[in-house]
Deep mutational scan, measured.
Amino acid sequence: MGTYKLILNGKTLKGETTTEAVDAATAEKVFKQYANDNGVDGEWTYDDATKTFTVTE
């Protein structure tokens, strides 16, 4: 398990959240659902060194 971070750079929603997941693929699924639930759809990037996903609208 590891802690993964999501940085939201949406047009109307900005912020950060974290999740505990077994791997990056699992964290990505959780974060994409979170972003979708909050109406954020954009370009995704992932930094393996910091376990950080970023979505920018």
Rank of each mutant, 00 (worst) to 15 (best):
M1T: 14
M1D: 14
M1S: 12
G2T: 11
G2C: 06
G2A: 15
G2N: 15
G2I: 14
G2K: 14
T3K: 13
T3E: 11
T3W: 15
T3F: 09
T3N: 09
Y4R: 00
Y4F: 10
Y4N: 01
K5I: 12
K5H: 10
L6W: 02
L6M: 05
L6D: 01
L6I: 04
L6P: 00
I7N: 05
I7S: 04
I7A: 04
I7K: 10
L8S: 03
L8W: 11
L8D: 01
L8C: 06
L8G: 02
N9Q: 09
N9C: 05
N9E: 10
G10L: 14
G10A: 13
G10K: 04
G10M: 12
K11T: 15
K11C: 06
K11H: 13
T12W: 15
T12F: 15
T12E: 08
T12I: 12
T12D: 15
T12S: 10
L13W: 13
L13V: 13
L13Y: 14
L13G: 13
L13T: 07
L13R: 03
L13E: 11
L13A: 06
K14R: 14
G15E: 12
G15V: 14
G15D: 12
G15I: 15
G15N: 12
G15S: 13
G15M: 13
E16S: 10
E16A: 08
E16V: 07
E16Q: 06
E16K: 05
E16I: 05
T17G: 05
T17N: 06
T17A: 14
T17K: 15
T17I: 13
T17L: 13
T18H: 09
T18V: 07
T18C: 06
T18Q: 10
T19F: 15
T19M: 13
T19Y: 13
T19K: 04
T19S: 07
E20P: 06
E20W: 09
E20N: 10
E20A: 11
A21H: 03
A21K: 03
A21D: 02
A21Q: 12
A21V: 05
A21N: 03
V22H: 14
D23Q: 03
D23E: 05
D23R: 03
D23Y: 03
A24G: 05
A24E: 10
A24M: 11
A25H: 10
A25Y: 15
A25P: 14
T26H: 12
T26W: 09
T26N: 09
T26V: 08
T26Q: 11
A27K: 00
A27E: 00
A27G: 02
A27L: 00
E28W: 15
E28V: 15
E28Q: 11
E28P: 00
E28A: 08
K29G: 09
K29Q: 12
K29V: 10
K29E: 11
K29C: 04
K29L: 12
V30H: 14
V30T: 15
V30P: 01
V30K: 07
V30D: 06
V30S: 07
V30N: 10
F31W: 02
F31V: 02
F31C: 02
F31D: 00
F31S: 00
K32S: 05
K32G: 03
K32M: 11
K32V: 08
K32T: 07
Q33Y: 06
Q33M: 07
Q33P: 02
Q33T: 07
Q33D: 14
Q33A: 13
Y34D: 02
Y34N: 02
Y34T: 03
Y34F: 15
Y34K: 03
Y34P: 00
Y34R: 03
A35N: 02
A35E: 01
A35G: 03
A35Q: 02
N36H: 13
N36L: 14
N36K: 11
N36M: 13
N36D: 15
N36F: 12
N36G: 06
N36V: 14
N36I: 14
N36C: 04
D37S: 09
D37K: 10
D37Q: 13
D37A: 13
D37N: 06
D37C: 05
N38W: 12
N38V: 08
N38Y: 11
N38S: 12
G39Q: 13
G39T: 04
G39W: 08
G39V: 04
V40G: 02
V40H: 04
V40A: 05
V40W: 13
V40E: 03
V40P: 02
D41V: 10
D41E: 08
D41M: 10
D41S: 10
D41H: 10
G42V: 02
G42H: 02
E43K: 08
E43W: 08
E43M: 10
E43A: 10
E43V: 12
E43S: 07
W44H: 01
W44Q: 01
W44A: 01
W44V: 02
W44I: 03
W44Y: 02
T45D: 11
T45K: 13
T45Q: 10
T45Y: 14
T45H: 08
Y46E: 00
Y46A: 01
Y46D: 00
D47W: 04
D47L: 04
D47G: 02
D47H: 11
D48N: 11
D48K: 09
D48M: 08
D48R: 09
D48T: 14
D48F: 12
A49R: 08
A49P: 09
T50V: 09
T50M: 14
T50S: 08
T50W: 05
T50D: 05
K51W: 07
K51Q: 08
K51T: 04
T52D: 01
T52S: 06
T52R: 03
T52E: 05
T52A: 04
T52H: 03
T52W: 02
F53D: 00
F53V: 01
F53A: 00
F53N: 00
T54D: 03
T54V: 09
T54R: 04
T54H: 06
V55K: 01
V55N: 02
V55Q: 01
V55F: 08
V55T: 03
V55W: 04
V55M: 06
T56Q: 07
T56A: 08
T56V: 12
T56S: 11
T56M: 07
T56W: 08
T56C: 05
E57V: 06
E57F: 10
